[in-house]
Write a protein that binds this DNA or RNA. Sequence first.
DNA 1: TTCGATAACTTGACACTGACTAGATTGCCC
DNA 2: GGGCAATCTAGTCAGTGTCAAGTTATCGAA
Lengths: 206, 206
Amino acid sequence: MSDTTEPDRTKPDPAKPDRRRPYHHGDLRRAILAAALDVISAEGPSALSLRDLARRAGVSHAAPAHHFKDRTGLLTAIAAEGYGLLAATLAEAEDLRDAGVRYVRFAREHPAHFQVMFAPELLRENDLELTTARALAGERLREAVAAVPPSGRGPDPRLAGVAAWSLAHGFATLLLSHNLDGPVGDQDPEDVFRLLTGMLFQSRSG
Amino acid sequence: MSDTTEPDRTKPDPAKPDRRRPYHHGDLRRAILAAALDVISAEGPSALSLRDLARRAGVSHAAPAHHFKDRTGLLTAIAAEGYGLLAATLAEAEDLRDAGVRYVRFAREHPAHFQVMFAPELLRENDLELTTARALAGERLREAVAAVPPSGRGPDPRLAGVAAWSLAHGFATLLLSHNLDGPVGDQDPEDVFRLLTGMLFQSRSG
DNA sequence: TTCGATAACTTGACACTGACTAGATTGCCC
DNA sequence: GGGCAATCTAGTCAGTGTCAAGTTATCGAA
């Protein structure tokens, strides 16, 4: 435990930790976020420990709280970031099917964000950043549904939205929880999803 | 919380806790499971604490471990029970649509089971009870898909299964995470789901 | 340039948790 | 009855989130 390397030479205070690293981390907030995403995608949100993240970033155990207040704050920040990323990729979708494919791709590329976004009991639901980002993503989804010609989306666009969202969300969720490892096998999940939508919407969508 | 009925009369040892309750709980395993389901459906699996469950059951903090080994064991038992319940209700389905409706109903009636079943990082994945129960539920799902006439399920039954499962699972998940509170509103979710399937499968299924 | 406010981080403490151990108590079966 | 296994208690340990108070860096005015 005690460092045995000439403990006195010019070291001002041996009780204090190594001072090669400056007192201020530089971009601790980003470092904590990145480490958190690693942990979550590997072991799930419940394995997240603020002290562990601090250790990984080489700072003291209470440092993360200064940027995120508490554990819930950190997860809320991740969820908000996730909704922002999702909204951005949905905005570029060509049509509803492409939006679905992008939804699945987002879940695969940002599994940690995705998990946290849909775990409301882990989040501060009244957080402003979170609610606005989520509303924006919802708006993008509605736009994608609205772009479908009326003949193809049935009488109620809200219902069509729920249908599309359910399909994409279910597929993405089952994919992440490894429940499609069998049936999908080694095929590209996005291709499988495209096949799926082709099957369900074959009589109407182009 | 504390029963105030004649607290001292013939109490032999005041240091020991209240002995009106017998040394053996009687059905601690079931009591712990029930309390765990309450906690999970109210606050999610991450709020689960073995010590809290012990407190609710009125036993010592280490008693739950005797029935479930550890936290993971408890959650695994819940998941296995969930897959058993799901398999049972799917076995009674009349057709694929009814199976989907039953899937959604299961998620609403057993939200705690449902959440835990699809959180693999919280479970002991190689647990025998879990894997057999899960396999059974998967078999019931495949049977429901196989019962659809070939004209209605496309060339690949596995793909049809993934489609049906994705739709039901996505709808159920979004429902539980309160993401459909807006669009579905106060309608019965099962009715909405029936409308959904009618929309997507209108050209083929009866 | 100096100074002071403020942000970034550390340190120490507290109550809580899961896991483990050894031992006490009980019901049950022969 | 005696023995025995299941059940439960009690104590301990390392690890956790969070709070309060202290320390150090940064930056904007004076």
